[in-house]
Design a protein around this nucleic acid. Structure first.
Lengths: 342, 342
DNA sequence: GGACGATGTGAAATCGATTTCAGTACTTTA
DNA sequence: TAAAGTACTGAAATCGATTTCACATCGTCC
């Protein structure tokens, strides 16, 4: 009924609180007789140790924070799964925080994590200059692992995909297929993924000895509307592109929508390559060629780094870079059959 | 640096701990002089009150649990947003727990919430007989609000969509369009949404005076693979259906995939109506007609009920039923133009 | 001018767990 | 047989906040 405390268990079992605590924590040096009596008492009373009290004493917590910008983004969903599974396996409970890419919300959540004395925090930071917000949390003894985005003047463990390589491969793919006017819809340039992906494109152009038409390079903000707008802009040019590379999944959806509305056939009139795969990318119209990031593995690695850091705080920082993979579908490069989907 | 406690703040400011606590909690009867000194001390030391200690005293928490079956399901994603926004506005922090529809995980998370003395828990239960797992949590004084799925022998506040009506509308829509052999791919029948949606279909058939061909009613489990398999089953029948109603979003994607693989044209050869909308439903091939549930509002209402319950535990239980909406797109009913997307 | 209320502050108890320290009983070892 | 472990248990301190109670000061009212 009400909440049972260790004191009541102790009385019920006829032992001291210390003994109950020892049974609870699987101490050595407890007689079988007492252990059983205490166990029975706990069962009978439905005892649940109060975690606040526990944490207060232990100065540590079995909670870890996961701060992401947008739960509607499929990449982050898979990431969450990866983090969750890895954490669950290690008895850590994940508190998921959604910042909406709002620095204030991020600050609020970081504050919560610090006050909570979390075991650690995995963060996809909202801005590349979030260092001053992150540093005090780390100084308070809470390990921080960054994912996906780097922060200036804040060295830390980080897990990310090889954005340069991914974008480079995608662009090379387009060039090899013979597309002449390739538009780039890049993402937020104040964030490393945005910059790196754009750099990857340039590298591809360089390697293949192609001059870039800067009029065809548009910079968006990773949101759906942005992809939509910029695609319309591209297609209304005097000399529209014959292919578009879009730097993330949400903007790809925006691009797709714009092209549909304009009645433009993909890939016949314009080919499309996106970044970040989605399980239903093959069911879009047309099935979308994308660079697939290993979101689940990003999450798992993040937890691994977090625990490693918690164990030995003074090791040099790690940078784990996972490789993306180009998945070719109908929107660019796969002409197998009209209704084929992968 | 290290973690600052109230004691250190008190010393720094030259006052007692009690006074610092009063400043912290905006007590009346604090002189401006002292208030300022304490504020400065807190700022100077970077003080963050320890939440465990706070909670231990207060017997209450500013954490609420949100237990969902699958974060990859778009309905639950919007729900999460709804809950989060409503909670954020009321200074509650949401701990998101993903059960994978695994009752053991659910039990584990409920235990955590109880031990945490959470302010409340919003649950989409894994099974309709989860009563015995939920009851003790509520008895421990933690308000519980169910969403989407009901539980037998466990009356509680609940928010859900009008599944019967939604399915009925969808089916009626199909019948009105003149489809003769309508297949139903229903969801898990041990869960109320699965049962109610199927019932809605039957009601539509009844109202329109149509006899149901039971060979065309298949029961799946709400997962993508299930929709895929059952659709293949349907289409390999001697007399295949000319329309399919699928009872949730993931199974719809499975159905779509199966039809694509079989090279079947939608809606020319078979029309398709799904349940649960997705932002990119209009970008699928073809744009998908679906019954849209108000996920965001479900989440908001859930938090509202939770707080109401916390405030007055003895009020009779509420049942909030929100209305879904049929969104007609190309996969069934909208023939406007080849590339139109909404 | 004494009583009363409003204002402002501190010492100490409290929340529910863990942990240290000390003590008892029982073995083992020299 | 005394000394030294080993096994087991309890009293009390502790973690960092909040809250009660007591007390001091000041103004006001009759």
């Amino acid at each position: 009924m009400a909440n049972v405390t260790i004191k009541e268990v102790a009385e019920y079992a006829g032992v001291s609180q210390a003994t109950v605590s020892r049974v609870l924590n699987h101490h050595a040096y407890i007689s079988d007789d007492v252990r059983q009596r205490v166990q029975q008492a706990m069962d009978a009373l439905g005892y649940q140790p109060n975690r606040s009290a526990r944490r207060l004493r232990a100065h540590s917590s079995d909670i870890m924070g996961l701060i992401i910008p947008d739960i509607q983004n499929h990449l982050f969903q898979t990431l969450v799964r990866g983090v969750e599974d890895a954490a669950y396996a290690r008895q850590l409970n994940v508190v998921l925080c959604n910042t909406d890419d709002n620095p204030d919300k991020q600050t609020a959540y970081l504050r919560v994590m610090q006050a909570e004395r979390a075991a650690g925090v995995v963060v996809i930071p909202t801005r590349s200059n979030d260092g001053p917000v992150l540093a005090p949390v780390r100084e308070a003894g809470i390990p921080i692992v960054l994912v996906d985005r780097e922060v200036v003047n804040f060295e830390a463990d980080i897990v990310k995909a090889d954005n340069v390589r991914g974008a480079c491969e995608a662009t090379t793919h387009l060039i090899r297929l013979g597309y002449q006017r390739i538009a780039i819809i890049a993402g937020t340039q104040s964030l490393t993924p945005g910059r790196e992906r754009l750099r990857g494109c340039y590298e591809a152009f360089d390697e293949m000895g192609i001059r870039v038409d800067s009029a065809l390079v548009k910079v968006g903000n990773f949101r759906l509307e942005s992809g939509y707008e910029l695609t319309r802009e591209c297609m209304s040019m005097a000399e529209p592109p014959d292919a578009i590379f879009v730097a993330n999944n949400l903007m790809s959806l925006g691009a797709l929508r714009a092209l549909h509305e304009l009645g433009i056939r993909i890939p016949e009139q314009v080919a499309l390559v996106g970044f970040d795969d989605m399980p239903w990318a093959g069911d879009l119209n047309p099935p979308l060629t994308t660079v697939s990031q290993p979101g689940y593995e990003l999450g798992q690695q993040a937890v691994r780094l977090l625990l490693q850091r918690a164990e030995s705080p003074d090791l040099p920082y790690n940078k784990v870079i996972l490789q993306p993979r180009l998945v070719v579908r109908r929107s660019c490069g796969a002409y197998l059959s009209v209704n084929h989907r992968d």
